[in-house]
Design a protein around this nucleic acid. Structure first.
Lengths: 223, 223, 223, 223
DNA sequence: CATGAATGAGGGTTCATTCAT
DNA sequence: AATGAATGAACCCTCATTCAT
């Protein structure tokens, strides 16, 4: 029964139907198109990128593109989705929710968050390039989505701050949503910085300065 | 501004030469084109705006446009220049360079800077709309210019911080350029916030929170 | 379905060779493709119908289509052939050639012809829809074929007229080919009418009016 | 004042404003586009004709086309309008409404109507070519318009018949709308005939046969 | 033999830019 | 100097057809 004849894919058990092979190949190509589109969009921008550019770079006919995505607008949506997903996944893995119960632990948490961000975004500066430089201004809807992303992040940060207030190592009167917005502002500034001059060392310096500013402010010896 | 012509043209008494009249009219129209282009670009974005849109809105032929600006790329440059100039002028008027010698004075100065920004930008949310949403991603060069603007602002902020350090009301070991970047991040976050939901009250809340965070950090009772 | 195993499946008596089975299946599918193509073409028109539309409606892959027909042009040809054949078959069955020997019999014959036409064409208004609305203008050759159809019909009609002349109940000086053309014009007008508003009653009224006009003309009491 | 200087078109009186010149030129080009589109559509059909074909044949850039017509659909509409108008104008000039009061006069009127039709349509067989061969099947709406044209004609014919009934030279029980439809069928058959083989002589023969059939029917000596 | 993924010619449409008036 | 008619490069998208599986 287990005749390992030619091919070997038509054997017993849950046979990978030929359609499954094809299905997988399609998923692969879809993935490749998204990736290549991501490359093009983040490098040249949405408007400067033609469907043909994506197709040529992938070595496929441009008609093929339209078998996988409805139109040009469709692909940028999927690219953004993909990038967003990747970023959030990467972040979510790393930072456990409320491990910090003291200020020191909190500082350490911030360290880790910063590191994660750096790893995710600076590993590939094309991510912020796409999200912050090229994705805005294509479309009202898309712009809204990017800002929505930032809003979500703010909420997450605010959650961390709330936790800190509850634990008593952050000011009890802290306006957490607003402070979250300010914090995110600093984070984004750092991301943009790293995007423009991708130097891990500089990033570390920035992270450190932000962390200290955030925790202690800039005044001399408090009191 | 760059009239290198012979003889002054705004000379009292002696007849305003016809050419001067014409020159003035041209300058006016040029100004109007820039303003209208600003309107269009900030509302619909660069790519969605056609030269015809600008011309129609102004009531001129679109051929005329090209007598004043070399091409579409040229006008966005001038619009950005114009906006930048307006912002800096407005800010420069208000905030005297180094009037703060104590932390309280410094806080007051920050107040005033914040107010100025609000007045300038939130008065017309189309300014950040243009600079942050629509101007990026048109062009590498233009993107660079927008970032250059932020860089310049950072330098200015860093100057303030240096002054504070010298005056002794800011931490002597403050990494001023880096802290400036973080500060600008918070400012930009506020601007974006105001651009999206233009509510002066919310803005004031944000300004206050940022100021306090900046001065004191977020920790409980320092030490 | 395509088990080409040994042994005939439904072979009574002399074995239907497997190839015959296949041959028959092919013929069936071919038939179905033509029918479905007819549906699509007559409903949406030639250009608005894609090969994919036909294939999807039939539940076959669109590649399969090309195993039965050379190209899109090919199928419309066969559809027209098929329709033409069906119409002529239906008509031929009913109307025996030269049964009319008196004017009354002739009138009765015209009745029957009219009824047949109605049955064939109005039963399915998609037939004239295809032939008269969609088939013309695709192609010079195809247009010619449709007109050829009409020409053939003219010849048939002329035959009937000749018979009437020979029998003496039609004017001896009747220009039969030309009159046939006029008669066909009236018939086609009726078909188009029925195609647009398929009401058997109206059709009957039209048939009657045409018959009387044809036989007697429109003048008052001849002479 | 009357300096007959160069040109001579800027003289006194209602000066043809330069804009008027241009306006006229635009109208001309618009006309030429319609004519050329008519040529292309009637020769090759709607689908086989590209905007580029029209433009090239006219010696203009294809972008220019879009300054005069919104899209491809728009031009066929205007072409049909134009053709329709031309036909109706030509017919309306010739055939005065109700000049016929006797059967003989009526016959003469039919003669003239026939001649007019011949002149209009056979002068340019491309007119029926466009209307009957190429215009149907492009679009439901356009097909409806063509049929509407025929309907209108039917109404006109019915009017003539009603007049004849009132005058007493046509059967009092004549179903005029229905007979009009039949009559139009014969006319269209003739037009199609002339379109396919444009021979005035044949046309005359057909006209004559139709007239006689129409007036007297085909039976022998009406008692 | 059936399938449908891949292909690319082809066509409609837009719009920045030029230039004759 | 102003105008806007003309232009054509460029781009998005469709769909008939091919061919490897």
């Amino acid at each position: 029964m287990t005749h390992h004849s030619a091919g070997g894919d038509s054997n017993i058990g849950p046979v990978t139907k030929p359609s499954a092979r094809v299905e997988q190949r399609k998923a692969e190509l879809r993935r490749e198109i998204i990736d290549t589109a991501f490359d093009c969009f983040s490098e040249k921008g949405y408007h400067a990128t033609g469907i043909a550019d994506i197709a040529v770079r992938l070595g496929i006919g441009h008609g093929t593109f339209y078998r996988y995505f409805a139109n040009k607008r469709d692909i940028i949506d999927h690219v953004i989705d993909d990038v967003t997903g990747r970023v959030f996944t990467a972040l979510a893995t790393d930072l456990s929710p409320e491990t910090a119960t003291t200020l020191d632990e909190y500082t350490a948490l911030l360290d880790r968050i910063g590191d994660s961000l750096n790893r995710v975004l600076l590993d590939d500066p094309r991510v912020p390039q796409l999200l912050l430089v090229h994705a805005t201004g294509i479309d009202d809807e898309l712009t809204a989505r990017v800002f929505g992303l930032l809003d979500s992040t703010e909420v997450v940060i605010a959650g961390y701050l709330d936790h800190g207030v509850r634990c008593g190592y952050l000011r009890p009167d802290l306006d957490t949503p607003t402070t979250a917005k300010a914090a995110l502002g600093m984070v984004v500034a750092g991301i943009v910085h790293g995007m423009r001059t991708p130097d891990p060392a500089l990033l570390a310096v920035y992270s450190h300065a932000v962390r200290r500013l955030f925790i202690e402010g800039v005044r001399v010896a408090a009191r």
